[in-house]
């Protein structure tokens, strides 16, 4: 039985289609990433799968339960860490955990034991009686993850788990999430707009843009699908290089001012040959770089835009809007 199965899931708000007929299946035990710029529909998708929003049309099951007709069963099967903090700052870490445990009707003795296990796991045991308002951003995030695990969910939703955290904390969290998946076999579905996060953590990634899934697969396959490694050669005579490289393993050449960008599979093996050929033909090389494609390149390939372009235009405006809306 797949952990999550979505079929043509759609959500529109007053005519604006936030999620437009997406379908995907997540196998049990996977770490699955929804990658895309802000406003792409990631959070809306999560909200529907976690029964917080009713889909406009389409169906989905989580742990085998329909998200509309079996709301309570879905809620019992999932843990969720929201994009925005959802802790009670006036309570201590322990009390936040205890509140959650009681809401999920976990019996007293089991509850106390699990809380102390989980707080130890996320390294907050020694601060469990401090009010949450004295916690740093990273500690709050860890506490939320621990809380999301308290009722032993089959599926854990992480909505932008490392947003706004410093690089060190982010690294810790990544290790931590990977370990959870590894040791407890929990299916994890996370949304992110950080390419490296998706790359490092996820078994499979769905790239989502403007409410639709534009590519889905393992990170390796996605990267391979756009034509292999990226080789950039700077030279006084880029035109000549483009003319020379006609081998079948070259999947694409772009000429720029003073350099060429060549895509090919297994660049590492072909580079020596290319350099020898260029040298023999008397074409100078100023510099040469080989880069493995990133998910950024994949996004660029499928949308014609970089995710950073999207961010630059949309992010600040979104943030401002969001903040203003919450005040």
């Amino acid at each position: 039985m797949p952990a999550i199965h979505a079929n043509n899931l759609t959500k529109s708000f007053d005519g604006f289609v936030a999620v437009d007929g997406i379908s995907f299946t997540i196998e049990s035990g996977e770490i699955f990433g929804l990658l895309g710029p802000n406003g792409a529909g990631k959070t809306t998708t999560i909200s529907m799968l976690s029964t917080m929003l009713k889909p406009t049309s389409g169906t989905a099951t989580v742990n085998g339960h329909d998200i509309v007709t079996k709301e309570d069963d879905v809620r019992k099967s999932i843990g969720i860490v929201f994009q925005d903090q959802s802790l009670d700052e006036e309570l201590t870490a322990y009390e936040n955990m205890d509140f959650h445990g009681r809401l999920y009707r976990i019996a007293g003795e089991v509850r106390r034991q699990r809380i102390s296990e989980l707080l130890t796991l996320v390294g907050l045991d020694d601060r469990k009686d401090d009010l949450v308002k004295t916690y740093s951003g990273g500690m709050r995030r860890r506490l939320e993850i621990a809380r999301g695990l308290l009722h032993e969910p089959k599926v854990l939703f992480l909505d932008e788990p490392t947003l706004g955290l410093d690089p060190q904390t982010r690294n810790h969290l990544w290790d931590y999430i990977a370990r959870l998946n590894d040791e407890k076999g929990i299916t994890i579905i996370l949304t992110t707009h950080y390419m490296e996060e998706a790359d490092r953590l996820c078994d499979r990634v769905a790239i989502i843009d403007r409410g639709t899934i534009i590519a889905l697969g393992t990170t390796e396959n996605l990267k391979a699908s756009i034509g292999g490694d990226v080789v950039t050669i700077a030279s006084p005579d880029p035109g000549a290089i483009a003319g020379l490289l006609t081998a079948p393993w070259v999947s694409g050449i772009e000429r720029h001012d003073g350099s060429v960008t060549i895509r090919m599979q297994d660049a590492d093996r072909h580079i020596p040959g290319i350099v020898t050929d260029l040298h023999r033909s008397g074409i100078g090389i100023t510099s040469l770089s080989v880069r493995k494609p990133t998910l950024e390149d994949v996004f660029l390939h499928y949308t014609g835009r970089t995710i950073r372009d999207e961010e630059a235009s949309g992010k600040e405006a979104m943030r401002m809007f969001h903040r203003a809306g919450r005040r």
Binding site: R75, F82, L103
Partner: peptide, 14 residues
């Protein structure tokens, strides 16, 4: 609602 805690309560199976 504004500090997000309500979500934690509403997403629980109660």
């Amino acid at each position: 609602k504004q500090f997000g805690f309500l979500k934690e309560t509403l997403v629980a199976p109660v």
